[in-house]
Amino acid sequence: RGRSVPVVNEDGNIISDIRHGKAVDLASGSEASSSKSKCTLCLSTRQNPTATTCGHVFCWNCIMEWCNEKPECPLCRTPITHSSLICIYHSDF
């Protein structure tokens, strides 16, 4: 049985699954692009991608600075704390 892992975009919508180590685009069924996503706070390629508990991903420094000023997700306003942020290691998205 092949298990898949959902990949979500900044809005929390599932955009692809990871199957057998490869990203598969749900719309086309083809392998997804390997280009890295941009941080919605600094608009640059994410550095040290970090997820909030609601699933949104930002640069580590960007979301830490944001959390210092406003302890909520910048996209959906879910309350967050520094200790709830999750750094995503070995990511290439």
Rank of each mutant, 00 (worst) to 15 (best):
P49S: 04
I88Q: 08
T78V: 14
S37N: 03
C73F: 07
C54D: 06
L43Y: 08
C39L: 06
K22R: 01
I80N: 00
K38C: 08
A32L: 09
P71N: 08
G21P: 06
N61C: 00
Y89L: 13
H82W: 07
I88C: 03
A32N: 12
T78A: 14
E10V: 08
I14C: 06
V24S: 03
D92M: 08
E10R: 05
T45R: 10
L43S: 01
R3E: 05
S91N: 06
L26E: 07
I14R: 05
G55C: 10
H90Q: 15
E10T: 06
R3Q: 05
H90V: 13
K36Y: 10
G12L: 14
K22Q: 00
C59G: 14
R46W: 13
D92G: 15
S34H: 05
C42G: 03
P79N: 01
A23G: 14
A27Y: 13
C67M: 03
V5D: 01
L43V: 02
H90D: 15
C42E: 00
C39Y: 08
A51F: 09
K22H: 00
I18D: 00
L41V: 14
T50Y: 06
G12Q: 13
W66A: 03
K22A: 00
N48Q: 09
I86D: 11
R77D: 07
R1W: 13
A51S: 11
Y89I: 14
C54P: 03
C62Q: 07
H56P: 11
R19E: 08
G12H: 12
M64P: 05
F58R: 02
V57P: 00
N61E: 05
S34K: 12
H20M: 15
P71L: 14
R46A: 12
G2E: 12
I88M: 02
N68A: 08
D92P: 12
S84V: 14
V8W: 09
C73D: 08
P71S: 13
C67Q: 03
H90N: 15
M64V: 01
C59H: 14
P74K: 12
T50L: 13
D25L: 02
V7K: 01
H20G: 15
S33M: 07
V5K: 01
S34W: 08
C62P: 08
R77N: 04
L85K: 06
L41Q: 13
S44V: 11
I63S: 05
L26G: 04
R19P: 09
F58K: 01
G2S: 14
K70V: 15
E69M: 09
G29A: 04
I18Q: 01
T81K: 01
I14Y: 12
E69S: 09
N48P: 11
A32K: 01
G21W: 09
H20A: 13
I14A: 05
C39H: 11
E65R: 12
G12V: 11
G55L: 11
S34M: 10
E65H: 07
